[in-house]
Measured scan of single mutants.
Amino acid sequence: SKIRITWGDKTWEWDGDDEEVWKRILEWARNLGDEELWRHVKEWVDK
């Protein structure tokens, strides 16, 4: 399956939905430097 994140007018996609993928997404969000996006992603990961 895919994980799709839409933020503003951008959309990103990742293949898979296991823990490793979420770790990569969390790292990606942090590297993007958008605090609010990172917080949202972290909330999803922690669920």
Rank of each mutant, 00 (worst) to 15 (best):
I25L: 06
V21I: 11
R30C: 07
I25G: 00
W28A: 01
K23M: 12
K47S: 09
G16I: 12
N31L: 15
L26I: 09
T6Q: 14
W22C: 03
E20N: 12
E13H: 03
K2Q: 06
R4S: 13
G8Q: 10
E27R: 03
E43K: 07
N31G: 12
E13K: 01
W28V: 02
T11M: 12
D9F: 01
D9C: 03
R30N: 10
D17M: 09
K2P: 07
E43N: 13
H40R: 11
H40M: 14
I25M: 06
R4C: 09
I5P: 00
W38H: 12
A29D: 00
E13W: 06
H40L: 12
D9V: 01
K10S: 12
K47N: 11
G33F: 08
L32M: 15
K42L: 13
R30F: 13
V21T: 15
W12G: 04
L32E: 14
V45T: 06
W22Y: 13
D46H: 04
E19D: 13
S1H: 15
V21K: 03
R4M: 13
D15T: 10
I25C: 01
W28Q: 01
D17T: 12
E20K: 09
E13L: 04
R24W: 07
N31D: 13
D46Q: 09
W44F: 14
E27Q: 09
D18P: 12
R30T: 13
R39S: 10
W7Y: 09
W14V: 04
W38K: 13
T6I: 13
G8T: 02
E13F: 05
K10Q: 13
E20C: 05
E36A: 06
I25Q: 00
L32T: 15
R39H: 10
R4E: 09
K47H: 14
E43D: 14
R39C: 08
I25F: 03
L32F: 15
R30H: 14
D17Y: 10
V21S: 08
R24T: 14
E19N: 15
D34N: 07
R39F: 10
E36D: 15
W12V: 08
H40S: 14
K42V: 12
I5Y: 05
E19L: 12
W28P: 00
K42T: 13
G16M: 13
A29E: 00
W7Q: 03
I5F: 13
D46G: 06
E35H: 05
W12N: 03
V45R: 09
L37I: 07
